[in-house]
Design a protein around this nucleic acid. Structure first.
Lengths: 254, 254
DNA sequence: ATCTATTTGTACGTATGTATT
DNA sequence: AAATACATACGTACAAATAGA
């Protein structure tokens, strides 16, 4: 089995905490530990690695930052293997794109192909309560917004529709990517400029698409769901392009 | 401007190092620091935050683990804002999928739609040296492998073809996702079972596809490039399905 | 090549906080 | 309520790395 840490020897040597963190990762996989399993305590690790408390603690912080462990105080406390949460994964990936400046078009290029794929795969596979959740979500923006603030709230809510679908994906990769794009679009806080009036017609179309989509999903009509979602993505993109938008990147936390 | 750290007050309180790390992130964006800019030194941070050395160091380790800073010792050293590298981002995201067990099919569902999209967008936009790089890459597996080891090497090399394309993407999101999937496939070390003989024919088809693709890319024929890539993905998937494969997840480092 | 100044890295002892029993 | 078992935080001292004189 190839070592987990494959590293060229020209790079600057790794700091000890990083080395320790890597060793612990290796140890966890070697030991076959799963989420929830307990790691050796601080004191234990100190003697095992023959290193100072601070070094061990820094190593744990590294693992924690990557979302791989959680730590609790008190008796029975300690560090525990933790399945990286989707939120954490999205946040970490968001930091990467913080420096690239993505355009709305970049995101929609992917949405345009992936969201219809997701919709098709979900047709006939959603439990009734999820379908109802989708319908309740749609109800939040059944009428055009009256002011800019409400418009923004509706926009975020309509994105949430897609996040709900993404959560239901059978394909974890597909679900994650779509969920992440929804997050990007939500974070890119959008301020519509005053001189570009809201396009009520397009907005209404988007709303109708979502209603029709829920029906297709309930009926199990995959082809129909795919077609509707394709239309929906196209109008959504058109809507975004028409509104002059101001994009604001930011770091993501926790 | 909304605070970066929006947090419900029911969750367990955040540890100080995490708080410090968040504060530093906020400070960096507020200050408008860019990659390469220097952060205050350890000693400085200790007095600014009124906290102990260890606490500050743990905070820095958190930021470092996320790929947001790099630290150097010596005069003129210190911590510097760092653009999260693609490698780091892929590794962090890989940890997330370590716990989900992705199937080859999951990955190909996305590749099947995204790779053709990328190919089309690159047609006519690649500099000659990249095209030659692609051709040299193809040459590595122009003949069928003679043993299992060589076969595996060829498989990884043929994946590299797609990584090269992904690097050239104008759309950073599209490029990243494809690159990440290539990484997943490379990491999923594949051992062909002995009783399933290599399908020389399909392999040859894949090779021919790549050659034809480079031609289409050079000629600037987007539609042709898209069509070839679609075919290529389909045969690649077929190839994967035919070979009984054993998948091995692992943590990813650095 | 050697020294020196600067800045991070490591070590360790002690005290405090926190949750379980 | 008290004892226990953990992590958390602090402060000092010293070691290592690196740039520049």
């Amino acid at each position: 089995m190839p070592p987990v840490t494959t590293r060229s020897n020209t790079e600057p040597r790794l700091s000890r905490p990083v080395q320790v963190a890597e060793s612990i990762k290796d140890w966890v996989v070697a030991e076959g530990l799963k989420a929830g399993d307990r790691l050796p305590g601080e004191a234990d690790l100190i003697v095992r690695f023959g290193m100072a408390k601070g070094t061990i603690r820094e190593a744990m912080r590294i693992l924690e930052a990557q979302g791989l462990i959680k730590t609790r105080t008190g008796p029975g406390g300690g560090s525990f293997v933790h399945e990286v949460s989707r939120e954490r994964a999205k946040a970490l990936l968001g930091n990467y794109f913080f420096f690239k400046n993505l355009t709305i078009g970049d995101i929609y290029q992917l949405r345009l192909t992936l969201e219809p794929e997701l919709a098709a795969s979900l047709a006939g596979n959603l439990p009734e309560d999820v379908l109802q959740l989708l319908e309740r979500n749609i109800a939040q923006y059944s009428r055009p917004a009256r002011d800019l603030e409400e418009e923004r709230a509706q926009h975020v809510a309509s994105l949430r529709f897609h996040a709900i679908l993404a959560e239901q994906a059978r394909n974890p990769l597909l679900g994650f990517v779509i969920d992440f794009m929804v997050k990007l679009l939500s974070d890119l806080t959008v301020y519509r400029r005053l001189y570009s009036p809201p396009n009520i017609e397009l907005w209404q179309q988007g709303h109708d698409h979502q209603k029709a989509l829920v029906k297709a999903l309930r009926d199990g009509d995959a082809d129909c769901a795919r077609a509707i979602m394709t239309d929906h993505m196209e109008t959504a993109w058109k809507l975004m392009r028409q509104q002059e938008v101001e994009v604001q990147n930011r770091f993501i936390s926790e």
